[in-house]
Amino acid sequence: MKCWNCETDTSGSPFCPTCGKIAERPAGTSHFAIFDLPLAYDVDVPALEKQFRELSLRLHPDRFAQAEAKERRLSLEQTTALNEAYKTLREPTRRAFYLLKMYGVDLEREDTGTQKDMPFEFLEEVLDLRESLEDAMAAKDLEQARKMATDVEARRKAALTEAVDMLRSLERSPSDEAAVKKASHALGRVRYFTRFLEQVEAFEEEALS
């Protein structure tokens, strides 16, 4: 990337090292790269927060309120990317899904044909869970729904831990196909459990209002 102002190579940094103007980010810069982090699951969240604040202080559109149109646009683009990266990396589940995507499995986009081969028994269990929740909701039994949620939350945590273990092992051996598959199955379970918990939350909110 060349600086738009002085044509120095900015090598992906947010500001031009020569003239100090806000720079363009190469398209497809990863969330990890924005924070100068290696592609790895373990992130020091307090340090990330601090870095986010420092970068925000320098990049935010408020800093460019009186600047030229070009700089205002770059500030908007960079801050937008920074916010997205921060949101993804700060939260363990989002971070895990994002890392899995870096290993080629995008659980957000199922139309690409990835991963719908969850074990039949698991799906049956999910269906049973959802049916029991539906019954509890019909009976306005908040107590029962909460009890189920506590149980599912514990299982969600366990599934996430399993996925994280796989992601950590992938950092050592990135081409381990079996580990990718295990990680994606575990994160798939996380997704089903999360969905269940969202339903309970929606029910709680409705019941309380």
Partner: peptide
């Protein structure tokens, strides 16, 4: 004041 006064820009930011 923060948006118009360059001297104060490093102090505070709203997200």
């Amino acid at each position: 004041d923060l948006l118009t006064n360059a001297d104060r820009q490093d102090e505070v930011l709203l997200l």
